[in-house]
Design a protein around this nucleic acid. Structure first.
Lengths: 190, 190
DNA sequence: CAGGTGATGTCAGTTGCTGTCATCACCAAC
DNA sequence: GTTGGTGATGACAGCAACTGACATCACCTG
């Protein structure tokens, strides 16, 4: 066995979510988290840039999955379909962790500072999707608009999936959200 | 004349933008701002909730303009048209301050913490637009999707307006962005 | 077994932000 | 004109987030 318990990072992330859920984000100090995880405050900041980032450790993998799905999408799809399907595909990595997603979402919904960070991550997804669409030949500003529309579709779908009680998959919920967006934007300007 | 120079709030906002532009956001302390504005640090925090908020003092007025424009839109328009036109109308209050908008945007673009706050304001606009659309009878989830799509249209249009050198109005740029979104989402899912 | 490496601990320091109380011009009522 | 209330500010103490610098020590590598 090592000098310290292994996976300090994982312990910190789990403990942080626990404490944020128990007492609230602002009522939890980094020292609280570090103590319960059995490390020092300094070690927390070696693993996570700040007190919020600890809830968003998986966002890099989600972004990578999104980019891969856009790059690997079949030809002939419209940009919005590419992005919509890519979000549905990338979201599959959350599919079997709805309980965790629920707890995490509740914590984020309860605190504006955490919402800010989530929005920044979503903007990161949109930026990555824009680049991936351009690589497929989608011109500006269509690439950026399709990417942002995709984020909107994902957000609305994810919210419904995590809030709802039905057993619909996240992917199906996102596809439904995409269909709704198509309907909403279909009307021609008079 | 009063005991203190009037409009401490306005001075703080102007000085903050100045200093953020000169030295960068992180290299500027609140004490720097307060000192140049001729007040104490404590007074800064009486006017603004935190160091970032000082750049977003006008967002409340923009949101009010947006809500009013949605409420006052003519009947018979599709939701996305209502929102698109409302953003174009609300944006008119920025029309004659493009220089200021440019400086401010450059500062925000240079710092992720400021981008987070801007994204939170945009999310606030989307939430307000969603409520205003529901009041017009637009059902869920169409209201939320149209609102978020409207924010995407506004963001892309504003970015083009503030970055570009042409003399196109912000309203026209937003309308063009809306047309682009319509084109992007038009393709039917195969 | 000597030396390098990586993860952690320790500690001092800056800064954002808050609570509390004092101050003082201004204004209204008497 | 004096009195008392009000609103904006100053002064000050204190907490918590975050950072930089240096020490420690198990582990690996040659």
């Amino acid at each position: 066995m090592g000098r310290w318990e292994p996976d300090a990072r994982g312990r910190l992330a789990r403990v942080a979510l626990e404490l944020y859920a128990e007492r609230g984000f602002e009522q939890t100090t980094v020292e609280d988290i570090a103590e319960r995880a059995g490390v020092t405050e300094r070690t927390f900041f070696r693993h996570f840039a700040d007190k919020r980032e600890v809830l968003f450790d998986g966002s890099g993998a989600l972004q990578q999955g999104l980019v891969d799905a856009i790059a690997g999408a079949p030809d002939g799809l419209s940009p919005i379909d590419v992005v919509g399907r890519a979000f549905a595909a990338a979201g599959s990595m959350l599919e079997d962790r709805r309980d965790h997603a629920r707890r995490r979402s509740a914590v984020i919904a309860a605190n504006p500072a955490l919402q800010e960070r989530e929005l920044l991550k979503m903007a990161g997804l949109a930026a990555a999707a824009t680049t991936a669409l351009r690589a497929r030949g989608v011109p500006d500003p269509a690439a950026g608009l399709a990417a942002q529309a995709g984020v909107a579709v994902f957000s609305v779908g994810f919210e419904a999936w995590v809030t709802g009680t039905s057993s619909d998959t996240l992917a199906a919920t996102i596809e439904a959200s995409l269909a709704q967006l198509r309907a909403v934007t279909a009307g021609a300007a008079p």
